[in-house]
Write a protein that binds this DNA or RNA. Sequence first.
RNA 1: GCCCUUGUAGCUCAGUCGGUAGAGCACCACCAUGGUAAGGUGGGGGUCAACGGUUCAAAUCCGUUCGAGGGCUCCA
Length: 581
Amino acid sequence: MAKVEVGERLSKIRHSMSHVMAEAVLEMFPSAQIAIGPSIDNGFYYDFDLPRQLVADDLEEITERMRAIIAENKPFVRTVVSREEAQRMFAEQTYKLELINAIPEDEEVSLYSVGEFTDLCRGPHVESSKELKADAFKLMSIAGAYWRGKETNPMLTRIYGTAWTNAKELRLYMQHLEDVEKRDHRKLGKDLDLFSLHEEAGPGLVYWHPMGARIRQAIESFWRDEHYANGYEMVYTPHIGKSWLWETSGHLGFYKEGMYPPMELDKSDYYAKPMNCPFHIMIYNNSKHSYRDLPFRWAELGTVYRYEKAGAMHGLMRVRGFTQDDAHLFVTPAQMQEEILEVLRFSLHMLKSFGFTEINAYLSTMPEKAVGDPKRWADATEALREAIEAEGLSYEVDEGGGAFYGPKIDLKVKDAIGREWQLSTIQFDFNEPERFNMTFVDSDGVEKRPYMIHRALLGSLERFFGVLIEHYAGAFPPWLAPEQIKIIPVGENFFNYAKELEKRLRKEGFRVSADLGDDRMNAKIRNAQQLKIPYMVIIGEREAEGDLVSVRYRSGKQENGVATEAFIASVKATVASKEQL
RNA sequence: GCCCUUGUAGCUCAGUCGGUAGAGCACCACCAUGGUAAGGUGGGGGUCAACGGUUCAAAUCCGUUCGAGGGCUCCA
């Protein structure tokens, strides 16, 4: 999430803070077993095996003890000992012994001591606990964590803390956390009545309410227009299919536990689709293709179902049923380079249209276990790299991080508060064309294998919606806002005029409604404001007589006595430009 | 799945020592007819997640189940 660049000093502070915490915990529980305590993104943690469960009040006591230790201004002292000596010193500490035994022979075994507390540690640390500020850390939470992250290992108690160089930084970080909480799409989804999830009707399955559906419509129609404009065709395919499809694609072999279980019909097993590709291949293989016909670019907003573990689901971000903005490109080897560049450009264009300006690329290359011709792997990987470089994107390479069936580019965007989200993915597939025996007839009359590229630009609509909600904190730019304009008459006498104006604006294509409730105008403004509606149009006698509107923007900015036609033109321009207001 | 936290009205939450359920918002009705972030009065609405136990008495204590939130990647 929020990756703050952690300077070396800060990571020393955090790491040292974790030692101070371990000392405090050992004071309270002399019999505690201590495991590991590193510095992490925004703070530190330490894992313990404790004689009893911790409660929230314990964190206060630990905090107090930590402050006392910090106040003693004790030095952090590093010593190097022999392996045997270390084993003797930590004879009572089973986790430490395991760690000591895991240190490679050629590395020295170092200890850090602060006051009474000595810990096996690579370091580095601050010189003295006086570099730690008693008011610049906070213990955040208690969590369970498996020893070394393995499910089969014992569960330890982990205490998370955050630590900074001074109190002001801590305060800013706490504010950041508050901001994150305010933007939470689950909270905004409720407040703005956008979507819901229903345990009793199936966990991880999303219900789009009318206001959420309006946003989805705006996304989808833009998406469709752009795809047609970029040489794509739309296809629609079934939601279920016989096991033959998944046996052929190979998914039943390695992905079965990620699929909804089969339903039996007419002595066949049908599965809900976890991906759309085999269906698109069915269309491809329905007839013979010449190299002259390629490339095909077939897109579908395809809803797929995957079994996510109960603990893994999270709002809209991780669900069991979602709609991929999927497309498959079937191209000749000669077209491959150009197609990759185009799809990357298209992807960047789409992301930028949604207000994401900071975009990073991640290139994943051939893993050890891979299918397909190594020459094809090399060509495809090179095409991906060249496309990234042609677009001047900054990128990281994940060597050997590709799927077994092909290399890929992932695009991650940074949102309004600096968090990174993976949205687009462009992947080669050397597996399915082979398994489904896809061919095209080349200019020499020989049947050849096409390149197949999967790509999703927004990822899944559900997740993308969640990211958008958080990015905009629910205040959508006018082109996406579910309600663009709220008409607020100053009193009942102007209800008729409000209705006329509503009709007129709706004819202009705006998502608009008039508030004809019996609230006072003040309350209506407040309601519209809380729904983050971008334009509030206030009308009374002056406006009705002069064909004017008084516009109150979501920002609080005010423009009175605007000619209605001028207002319409201005909103249209803002919508067309996709600007945020 | 496992660990911690948690579950009271549509939403946000209060409920002490066990004594039989409350507030604000939302909703409904009536009054008020208004100029830039909540007008007034009244009303309806809850098997206190479920089940079991302790007790004269359970939202409250104990147990089990279910759900939700956070964590289970950061390496001595």
